[in-house]
Simulated scan of single mutants.
Amino acid sequence: MYEVHSIDGVGNRTLAKIIEPGATIGRVGAQVIAIGFNDKYLIAKRLHEDKITVSYYIVDKTRDGIYKNASEITEGPFNQEAFQKLKQERKLPEFSEQFTQY
């Protein structure tokens, strides 16, 4: 199970895997502005600190585990063009949740 949560405000919104109640492991750093998911993948759109640059990430949920580092199961960052190509090739989900950017 995963969650998007903020620490000290909206600008710190991250994507994390829940390992037990109240404990998570980070998967995509701040600031997550959109997510989508299906049975195999979780996708995230991230706005960088400059408030201009956007990057995309893919989490393979089937390979994820509590002893894995984010770098072992999270792919990215991708620019929009590269992400759209992967989205089509892998039949990735659409973004289903949008979050306030600021």
Rank of each mutant, 00 (worst) to 15 (best):
M1R: 14
Y2K: 03
E3Y: 10
E3G: 08
E3P: 09
V4N: 05
H5Y: 15
H5R: 15
H5W: 11
S6H: 03
V10N: 14
V10E: 15
R13M: 10
R13Q: 11
R13D: 12
R13N: 09
T14H: 08
T14E: 11
L15S: 03
L15C: 00
A16R: 02
A16N: 09
A16H: 01
K17E: 09
K17Q: 07
I18N: 00
I19V: 12
E20W: 06
P21R: 11
P21I: 05
A23R: 09
R27L: 01
G29H: 07
A30G: 12
V32C: 12
V32K: 06
A34F: 07
A34Y: 05
I35F: 01
G36A: 09
G36E: 11
G36V: 04
F37S: 01
F37P: 11
D39F: 03
D39E: 06
D39A: 08
I43R: 03
K45C: 00
R46P: 09
L47Y: 03
L47H: 10
D50Y: 09
I52V: 15
I52A: 13
T53I: 05
V54I: 14
S55R: 05
S55V: 02
Y56L: 08
Y57E: 10
V59I: 13
V59S: 01
D60H: 00
K61N: 05
T62H: 10
T62W: 03
T62I: 10
R63K: 15
G65M: 02
I66N: 12
I66V: 14
Y67R: 11
Y67F: 12
K68W: 08
N69L: 12
N69D: 08
N69K: 14
A70W: 05
I73C: 00
I73Y: 06
I73V: 15
T74F: 07
E75T: 08
E75M: 13
F78C: 00
N79T: 12
N79M: 04
E81A: 15
A82S: 15
K85Y: 03
K85L: 11
K85F: 01
L86N: 13
L86R: 14
K87M: 04
E89G: 02
R90N: 04
K91M: 11
K91R: 13
K91Q: 13
P93G: 07
P93D: 01
F95K: 07
F95I: 09
S96H: 01
S96Q: 06
E97P: 05
Q98L: 14
F99R: 01
F99T: 04
Y102P: 13
